[in-house]
Design a protein around this nucleic acid. Structure first.
Lengths: 121, 121
DNA sequence: TATTGTTATACTCTATAACTATA
DNA sequence: TATAGTTATAGAGTATAACAATA
């Protein structure tokens, strides 16, 4: 988490904004789902999405299924930033992951995926 | 992280304050070390420690080795809260850890400890 | 009526810059 | 001079309560 906080800061992203980008890499959730993933209130999400949208990292779209709901998705710029940050985080964790050999890393990945239902972020 | 955020909030602790308590459970770091663990600036630490100290969760003491340094340590109330939160977090993660059998959990713990140098938080 | 999301408000979190005190 | 920490300030993050729109 310290590494995430530090790398996020280098891109003017709070830990929370970093988590938002992480989630949106492979999903297009509604505001309420996003708040739920993050463990935050929906009113908090409004502000977070406002600021990220103003920066051009993501966008909102009214749901076609439910006129009350709003879907959040990444822009090209957001995806690009998310990939860049992801690469930097991997690199920052190299000293840690490097303590394991290839077999151990594979075992760790498998265990975490089994535990988390292959859900990242 | 979502679980940590949610459980922290139930005790009026931000994710960051939760991490502070987690670190102080088994260490007595200086302000600068604490900031470094968390990936934050030292000026940010001053505010975080101020507020937690005002709540009676932790305290400061001037270092005997270095008159400039300040050591941070938990109070009895802080330790008690940290234990309570720790228990709740474990319980919240039960559905995830429960997907692994005892052998797998042991393997996971061992891999993570090897990777992180047996440092928690 | 219940649910989804936003707004208003107040406090916490955070970084930058300038400062004090000790080394 | 350099390092450890604090303070002042401004902006981001957060929850609560009240609200509008849709179901």
């Amino acid at each position: 988490m310290g590494a995430l906080t530090r790398i996020g800061a280098e891109h003017e992203l709070s830990l929370t904004q970093l988590r938002v980008l992480g989630i949106l890499r492979d999903r297009t959730p509604r505001m309420a789902e996003l708040a739920d993933y993050l463990g935050l209130e929906k009113s908090t999400m409004s502000g977070l999405v406002d600021r990220a949208e103003r920066r051009g990292l993501l966008a909102r779209a009214r749901s076609l299924d439910d006129g009350r709901a709003v879907e959040v998705f990444m822009t090209a710029a957001g995806l690009e930033l998310a990939e860049r940050v992801h690469t930097e985080v991997r690199r920052a964790l190299d000293p840690a992951t490097g303590r394991l050999d290839a077999t151990e890393r594979q075992a760790l990945t498998r265990l975490l995926e089994r535990m988390l239902g292959s859900a990242p972020a």
